[in-house]
Structure formats: C-alpha cells, structure tokens
Design a binder for these strands. Structure first.
Length: 272
DNA sequence: CCATGTACCTGAAGGC
DNA sequence: TGCCTTCAGGTACATG
C-alpha cells in the first residue's frame, strides 16, 4: 500500500504529533509485528526526530531507533487520548507518558517495527530516496546505465532508487511514454531526463494530495488521501487513455498488475 | 546479473 | 447462500 507519498504524509504528521513525547509503554498485540534487535528498553526514551528513507520511517529515540515499514496495509493512527478499545487489526500500541497513543494497525500483518541501535541494520541496502536532493539527473542516469533490468522491475526494486511502488511506477512510466519492458540501460538521454522529471512530478503531486487511498491507506488521523482521484493510468483498465483515447490495458509484469496505454507506451524494440 | 515463483496474511470481489 | 479462485499500495528468499 503505502509508497513514498503516503509514508511522507505520515512522517510529516508524526513530527507534529509525537516529537518530544516520552514513551511509557509499547505493547505488541501480534508478536511478529515487532522485531526487537537490541536490548535497550524503549520505556522512558523520548522521540528526538522522525526521518524517512524510501518507504521506511526512522523514529529516533534518545538511545535507540524504531525503524517502521507499513508494507501493504499498515496504518499509524495517533490519538491524543488512548481509546477504550482499539480498532480491529491493531497490532502494536505505543503509549506516551501524557496518555496519548500511537496505534499500529495492519490487517495483513506484513508491516514491521524494528527496534535497533543502528537503522542501517535495516536500510543499508536501500537506494537513495527518489526525492532526496542528492538524487539529481546525473545520478539517476548513472544508475540506469548500469542496469540491464526492465524499467518496471528497476523502479520497483528499491535498491537503485527508493520510494516508488506499483502505483507510482506505472504513473511515472505513463507520463514518460515508456513501456515497462524497456531496458534501463537502453534509454536515450532525453528519455532518461523525461523519466526523471516524471518521477519527481508524480511523487510531488501525490505528496501535495496527501497520498493515494485505494482501500486501506490512512494518515495518522484516519483520513484517506486524495491522489487516487488524479491517476492517469493506474487502475484504469478498459477506460480510454487520458491522452489518446486508446483503451488502457493491464498485464502481469515483474509479478505485478501493470497498467499502461498500448498506444502511448510502445516497447522500444517495436517503436521504429 | 536477471527473471520468476513462493511465502508471509487477511479480506473483498467475482464466477458458478 | 455458499464455495472456490484471484487479487491487493511490499519485500525476502529460493531457484533456474
């Protein structure tokens, strides 16, 4: 579910909500949602900062870190006062000393809280964030030129560039008029630049719209995002392409449902 | 190096 | 009303 724009929305709200608060207790209601990799107690530690890399949240406490990944259905819900009864599917409850609570709700149980001394233990193999200021056109082109992967798998990988998931990969490729099967290293200079700019635009617009909600995503107040109303290709199978009117198609690619316009996004090998 | 399949989970939706 | 299959914003790991 949550990709970069959704996680960024949550990160910004967490900075408003839990920065400076002191953890009183943390209760896993489903044990496997919590991966404890250090023995420093979280109790009595204060939240110092909240960072994001790709789809990971990094909550820095006084002496250790919580690295959080929401995976498909994870939600972080903030309550100024604790609830009498948590919602269904709540897997972890964090209670702060002032009585406020952060609930980790995760229907499918794929999400994780990693308690670590060094966040790199979890995110060392994650590539530079797609919206990192260091991620410029030159860096992006270098990454592309060194990979023989198809674009869909390349952008989904998180190893080269992090933060894009199934929705925003399809949206970025559509805006670039590139086919998911095109090989990363085969892009021209112009195509690379177009893809780079498309990724930036797609992600920035989605952040402005508070992320996309298909079914499960919510921000820390339980609100859905708005960006799903602006999809140009994702989920639009059988509807006319917004640019040319051709019916949008869906195929299985890199193991994922992949939406594309067969007219705007021709495979490189048959383009001529 | 790269592609594909499976596993981890729950629930919604569609076909029969 | 079922029962069965497929699919879902993700990723780790095993296998050719």
């Amino acid at each position: 579910m949550p990709e970069l724009p959704e996680v960024e929305t949550v990160a910004r709200e967490l900075r408003q909500n839990i920065l400076g608060r002191t953890l009183k207790s943390i209760d896993p209601l489903w044990g496997r949602s919590m991966d404890v990799r250090c023995d420093i107690p979280l109790e009595n530690q204060s939240v110092k900062s909240i960072a994001r890399k790709g789809k990971y949240l990094i909550v820095s406490f006084t002496r250790s870190f919580l690295v959080i990944h929401l995976r498909m259905t994870g939600q972080l819900l903030f309550y100024t006062q604790g609830l009498q009864k948590p919602h269904n599917h709540v897997r972890i409850i964090v209670t702060f000393t002032d009585g406020s609570q952060l609930h980790f709700r995760d229907m499918r149980k794929f999400g994780r809280f990693y308690h670590v001394i060094d966040p790199d233990e979890i995110i060392k193999n994650i590539g530079m964030d797609a919206l990192d200021m260091q991620m410029n056109l030159h860096t992006f082109r270098t990454l592309l030129s060194n990979s023989r992967m198809n674009l869909k798998a390349f952008l989904l990988s998180q190893y080269y560039i992090s933060g894009l998931g199934n929705i925003y990969v399809d949206e970025s490729l559509f805006r670039s008029h590139l086919h998911p099967s095109d090989i990363a290293a085969s892009l021209s200079k112009g195509q690379s630049e177009l893809l780079f700019n498309s990724i930036r635009t797609v992600l920035n617009e989605a952040v402005e719209n508070m992320g996309s909600t298909i079914s499960d995503y919510r921000d820390t107040y339980g609100n859905a995002g708005n960006n799903q109303n602006f999809f140009r290709v994702y989920g639009r199978v059988g509807n006319p392409c917004v640019e040319c009117g051709t019916m949008v198609k869906k195929m299985r690619f890199a193991g994922r449902g992949t939406y594309y316009c067969p007219s705007c996004q021709k495979p490189e090998k048959v383009k001529k």
